[in-house]
Design a binder for these strands. Structure first.
Lengths: 190, 190
DNA sequence: CGCGACGTTGATTTGCCTCAACGATTGTGG
DNA sequence: CCACAATCGTTGAGGCAAATCAACGTCGCG
């Protein structure tokens, strides 16, 4: 159960057995059915979830009622609305499973307790944030500097597995284009 | 000299006098002339710079040779290429002063030393990253979900001061539109 | 003074969207 | 296990936001 998150942690920090055990102790293990909402707009996000198995999307609904997919998270990623979680304020986002998912979740109080007990974990979460920031920066650059077709090609190259697991119209929204136009791009390449 | 960064730190963590003094000790104070490059593509970024006074831009040059401005940083912000800084790998970005600037800089070794000596600072930098991540997330959402005119209006409302200090064609590139089109938007509103 | 950086304007083009209609596939309740 | 609905992907026609290209005025500065 904990092998994959242990591997994740080992990439960030060196943990003693004691630290590792404590960490495992505060993680809540959950199995969530397909299409379940972990968070809806207006709610305060009280979790950071590590994905052991499954696929989850984070999305936003704009003023015209259109969904915009921000992230598809699969094995070995964390999902949360960090701003809502940290400042304990209502979120503007939705988080939903796309497949049945196995998660390890940590809530606000336990996270603070973890940091107070072993400050070393601050480092792990800091590095995790850095990774997220880099990914988002690259994504932003790609979105503003490249045409839709190139963005699509980059996407299927970088995340060949995700393409299989997520419906095409969601990928379109993730890429910032309409479902119809994505279909036309795909046609072009045949 | 340190008043503003102290205020910044106080928002994140509570520091003892000893911690504060140590922190001041590792900060390198620099005054940089207008239009100076702090980082060029291909170099490894070895600083995080807190801006006491001045204005700095971070930008990227795409495969067609066009500049894309990622960030304008003014007083009370940090600038760096975090990915390059952390992983000690060559950066793809440029960082350049737009005005004469007064900075407090920290390099990789001193940052690690700071964390080893007082782990509490991990928290400060983690919170800083969270803030950056939130800002970028909102910006990304705005970019994909709103038309250019609305993005421009939001920009001048949120950063009325920056608008005065940065040439218009750089703002256009920041907003992801051509300089000509920004000019036309402005005309429309007169 | 003269040159380069900056901003403006108009004409034309284009990448992508919207709307509408239509198969194919999935899944779900009777 | 079938029937019917919902979800998903495709295709075409038409439209619009924003890009591109080109020309020109202005200003600050070496």
């Amino acid at each position: 159960m904990f092998e994959s998150i242990d591997r994740y942690a080992d990439q960030c920090v060196r943990l003693s057995d004691e630290e590792r055990t404590f960490f495992h102790g505060i993680l809540q293990r959950k199995t969530i059915k397909k299409k379940t909402f972990l968070l809806r707009k207006g709610e305060v996000c009280n979790f950071e979830a590590y994905i052991v198995k499954g696929c989850i999307r984070t999305f936003y609904i704009d003023e015209n009622g259109f969904e915009i997919n921000l992230q598809f998270a699969v094995e070995d990623w964390w999902v949360s609305d960090i701003a809502s979680f940290t400042d304990r304020k209502p979120s503007g986002l939705f988080i939903q499973t796309l497949e049945e998912s196995e998660l390890l979740m940590i809530d606000h109080d336990h996270k603070e307790q973890l940091f107070r007990t072993y400050p070393k974990f601050e480092r792990m979460f800091r590095l995790m944030l850095q990774r997220n920031l880099s990914v988002l920066q690259n994504r932003f650059l790609a979105t503003v500097s490249q045409p839709a077709e190139q963005r699509y090609l980059d996407f299927i190259q970088r995340y060949p597995d995700i393409q299989q697991r997520v419906p095409q119209h969601m990928i379109a929204s993730y890429l910032g284009i309409s479902a119809e136009f994505l279909s036309k791009i795909r046609k072009r390449r045949r």
